[in-house]
Nucleic acid binder design. Structure first.
Length: 804
RNA sequence: GCCAGCGUGGCGGAAUUGGCAGACGCGCGAGACUCAAAAUCUCGUAUCCUCCGGGAUGUGCCGGUUCGACUCCGGCCGCUGGCACCA
């Protein structure tokens, strides 16, 4: 008889909820273990089969750790602000809160039906005023420390979404969500000074147990580069400009300078003859899309300004051009061009017939720019030096002469933090009629989102909150001064920047969390989620965490000690699952047909956790077949215990049992669930070959299986005669001495090819082993008539005879 | 273009201080049980050759180091992810 998953799963889910089996005692004396999932955005379409992959992985570790005697914190919550709810509200005019609540309820049901061991008393929701009160509080602290400021910036305005997007949310000139066109537009916006933390965000990556590729992505994103800033004077003007270069050693080869078309200086220095051409070019660039501008394959364009700069190292006059390959937003927005040693400058110089002067030997500058290391020439006091020495010497010279200085720049920009949306945390700022602005007093937090009859665009580019006069207007009770509330709200990332802190102390009214508890529970020991959050969420959360560390709120420099990214589950046709492709698998269907345990087991068995693997219905059936096989091994047709299970020891299974305990324990620890499962299959296969299996081994096996398939685990544990949940039973241990065999099989190779095998005592000497190998009949055949040149003996493994 | 990762049977995948390639599962084949089928249990299953003892080949391709290479080194090809005129 196969087991009835519907009955059993429901039974244990009810038991766990009613008994609060997974409630965390944060004050416990046990060793702590904080195991976290990236909390989901509760979308209207519900969970898809990708979600349970990461959730199952953390659940397995959490359940094992509880059995190993740890106090485990394993919570779940909802990242519930977000664009889909906003758009739903705009479409229907309804309050997104209701819609969001419905989605959350559905997500919670689905997650509970999968049997994850969350402490539901710690559930949090970023849209709950009691939660976002503290999101707003953190914003106020950032503002007080000068890390949140307003700036007129060229922003990515998305007319279709009616909002501004961060650079990271724009992909190929289109919005990440929805794929709508995005244009540049100057607007007054809130910005967070993440650049102030660039170096620390970079350096502290070293200490983290994260996948190397994610660290690398963050490093690239931060994009630190060392070089020098050099001042160039403009001829016949009382003006100068700074350039940034990583190759100050090539200053003698600078034959022209280029300003970004948007550079402030351009209109001041342009000559009358060139004015028209320059203005036309600026206009042209403005109308170019982001994609066009950043297309590296296109030909270089640019216009001469008519003005000249003085190269400070040799006082030569060099022409100043403008070109769109120089970006206003990087470095100083101006460069010195060294065509002989920079490919972009080379292309530009070739096109506009500008001089090319070699200053580093080693390439052929009639063919291409030479960017390698070499001896410097035509360079006065750095002639003869190589790159490194020349760079150092030049920077020192620039500093001594007050012309330039050592400088580090970053690709990372400050974080554009405001959104013109209703469905987000209100930014707690009041703009007063006298032009000043203040934060909302802390005791007035949370500044709640007003309930609105109808949510519709303001028409001014402001958020729908601008329509709500009552909420908008503030009067200072003391002075009678009038003010207007900030209508921008925070981006979705805000709530997810610190939720892992709130889980530690979710109901605290006095502080975002009790400092003592933060001290005890930070950092997160294991954090699992999708790789799509490699830069954005993880970088922003690290930034906030470091800020909170600086103001003494959190005790650690980093939030997430160990990070792992689960892979994607693809459709059966090997393509990404999507409604339009019609290859989406709904977990609800699988829970009904095969059971949650089967789904969990299958997803863990598909392959390594970080791999992208295609869904397979046959594979799913196979997972269920294994669970049925386990069930039948232990339970008879009539529901009682199998006669196979005996109280006395069964020595035949001793070795494989201890091997299984060892391998499964180690594999769980390393998140190698697929190989742990295959080891358990081997154990079950062995049990089927035996007439008797000791109860001790079966109970140990049930404990090993339980973290992956907890419902069947609990049920079998109960049927084995236990009253309490298996959750806090001690984890099985293995005896290493049971793993070593007295006899080992040795491979005998002749010329590196396996020709024979033999079984010998484990501690046999090298000499004896060699002798035995040479005496082997099959080996004799292969070495007959040949001269033995050499014999390699690896004790316990092999003998290789070299003969010809 | 740059950076990172990957490439193993019909399929998902195992195997790393260099030491039996293909564990485990799927699929497929055979047998047992059955009136029969399903389910279940057992066995087989990289490719080619074979006198059925065995032999040869094989981890993307080419070359190298080594007694011995999926593993290390050099060069190439392909795929995936990230970044991209970043000075």
């Amino acid at each position: 008889m196969n087991y009835n998953h519907r009955e059993i799963e429901k039974k244990w889910q009810k038991y766990w909820l009613e008994n609060k089996t997974f409630k965390t005692d944060v004050h416990s004396d046990k060793k702590k273990m904080y195991i976290l999932d990236m909390f989901p955005y509760p979308s209207g379409s519900g969970l898809h089969v990708g979600h349970p992959e990461g959730y199952t992985a953390t659940d397995i570790v959490a359940r094992m750790k509880r059995m190993q005697g740890y106090e485990v914190l394993h919570p779940m919550g909802w990242d519930a602000f977000g664009l889909p709810a906003e758009q739903y509200a705009l479409d229907t005019g309804k309050n997104p809160a209701e819609f969001t609540q419905k989605n959350i309820d559905n997500f919670r049901r689905q997650i509970q039906e999968l049997g994850f061991s969350y402490d539901w008393d710690r559930e949090i929701n970023t849209t709950d005023p009691n939660y976002y009160k503290w999101t707003q509080w953190i914003f106020i602290k950032l503002y007080e420390k000068g890390l949140a400021y307003m700036d007129e910036v060229e922003v990515n305005w998305c007319p279709a979404l009616g909002t501004v997007l961060a650079n990271e949310e724009v992909i190929d000139g289109k919005s990440e969500r929805g794929g709508h066109p995005v244009v540049k537009k100057p607007m007054k916006q809130w910005v967070l000074k993440i650049t102030e933390y660039a170096d620390r965000l970079l350096e502290d990556l070293e200490e983290l147990d994260w996948p190397e590729n994610i660290k690398e992505m963050q490093r690239n994103w931060i994009g630190r580069s060392e070089g020098a800033e050099v001042t160039f004077k403009v001829k016949d003007h009382d003006e100068s400009f700074q350039i940034f270069t990583t190759r100050p050693d090539t200053l003698f080869g600078a034959t022209y300078a280029v300003l970004a078309p948007e550079h402030d200086l351009v209109m001041k220095i342009v000559t009358e003859e060139q004015r028209e051409a320059v203005e036309a070019y600026i206009e042209e660039v403005k109308n170019k899309s982001e994609i066009e501008r950043t297309d590296t394959t296109k030909e270089k364009t640019g216009v001469f300004t008519g003005a000249y700069a003085i190269n400070p190292v040799n006082n030569k006059e060099i022409p100043i051009w403008i070109a769109d390959y120089v970006l206003k937003t990087y470095g100083t927005g101006a460069i010195m061009a060294v065509p002989a040693h920079d490919q972009r400058d080379y292309e530009f110089a070739k096109k506009f017939d500008l001089p090319i002067v070699e200053v580093v030997k080693g390439g052929d500058i009639s063919q291409e720019a030479f960017v390698g290391d070499g001896e410097h020439v035509n360079s006065d006091f750095i002639n003869g030096m190589n790159n490194e020495e020349a760079i150092e010497t030049m920077i020192n010279w620039l500093e001594e002469n007050g012309i330039g200085k050592r400088k580090v720049t970053y690709k990372l920009r400050d974080w554009l933090f405001s959104r013109q949306r209703y469905w987000g945390e209100p930014i707690p700022i009041i703009h007063w009629e006298d032009g000043t602005m203040t934060t909302v007093p802390e005791e007035e937090l949370p500044l709640k989102l007003p309930e609105m009859e109808e949510i519709k665009p303001s028409g001014t580019g402001e958020s729908p909150l601008a329509n709500n006069e009552a909420w908008l207007t503030v009067v200072d009770p003391e002075t009678g001064k009038k003010g207007r509330r900030e209508t921008n709200t925070m981006p979705q990332w805000a709530g997810s920047c610190w939720y892992y802190l709130r889980f530690i102390d979710p109901h605290n009214d006095e502080a975002l969390a009790d400092p003592e508890l933060l001290k005890k529970w930070l950092p997160v020991d294991l954090y699992i989620g999708g790789a799509e959050h490699a830069v954005l969420h993880l970088l922003y959360a690290r930034f906030w965490h470091k800020f909170l560390y600086d103001i003494g709120v959190v005790p650690t420099k980093e939030p997430f000690q160990k990070l792992f990214n689960q892979g994607m589950i693809l459709g059966e046709n090997n393509e990404k699952m999507s409604k339009s492709r019609g290859n989406v698998v709904n977990p609800d269907d699988i829970v009904r047909s095969h059971g949650a345990d089967t789904l969990r087991l299958y997803e863990m068995f598909m392959g390594p956790l970080d791999a992208d693997v295609a869904w397979s219905t046959d594979g799913l059936d196979g997972a269920r077949r294994f669970l049925d096989r386990v069930w039948r091994l232990i339970i008879k047709e009539d529901g009682t215990l199998s006669d196979r299970i005996v109280d006395e020891p069964t020595e035949n299974l001793e070795k494989v049992y201890h091997q299984t305990v060892k391998k499964v324990t180690e594999d769980y620890e390393n998140l190698h669930f697929n190989t742990a499962i295959s080891q358990m299959m081997i154990f079950v296969n062995e049990c089927y070959k035996q007439e008797k299996v000791s109860k001790e081994y079966i109970e140990g096996f049930v404990k090993l299986l339980y973290p992956i398939t907890p419902h069947i685990g609990e049920e079998l544990w109960q049927r084995l005669g236990h009253e309490d949940t298996i959750t806090y039973e001690p984890w099985p241990t293995y005896d290493a001495s049971k793993l070593v065999e007295d006899e080992v099989e040795i491979v005998i190779q002749v010329m590196g090819k396996v020709r024979s095998k033999m079984t010998v005592p484990r501690d046999i000497s090298k000499e004896e082993l060699e002798e035995k190998a040479l005496a082997d009949e099959k080996v004799k055949k292969w070495i007959d008539g040949k001269t033995i040149r050499k014999i390699i003996v690896v004790p316990g493994k092999l003998v290789n005879i070299v003969a010809n």
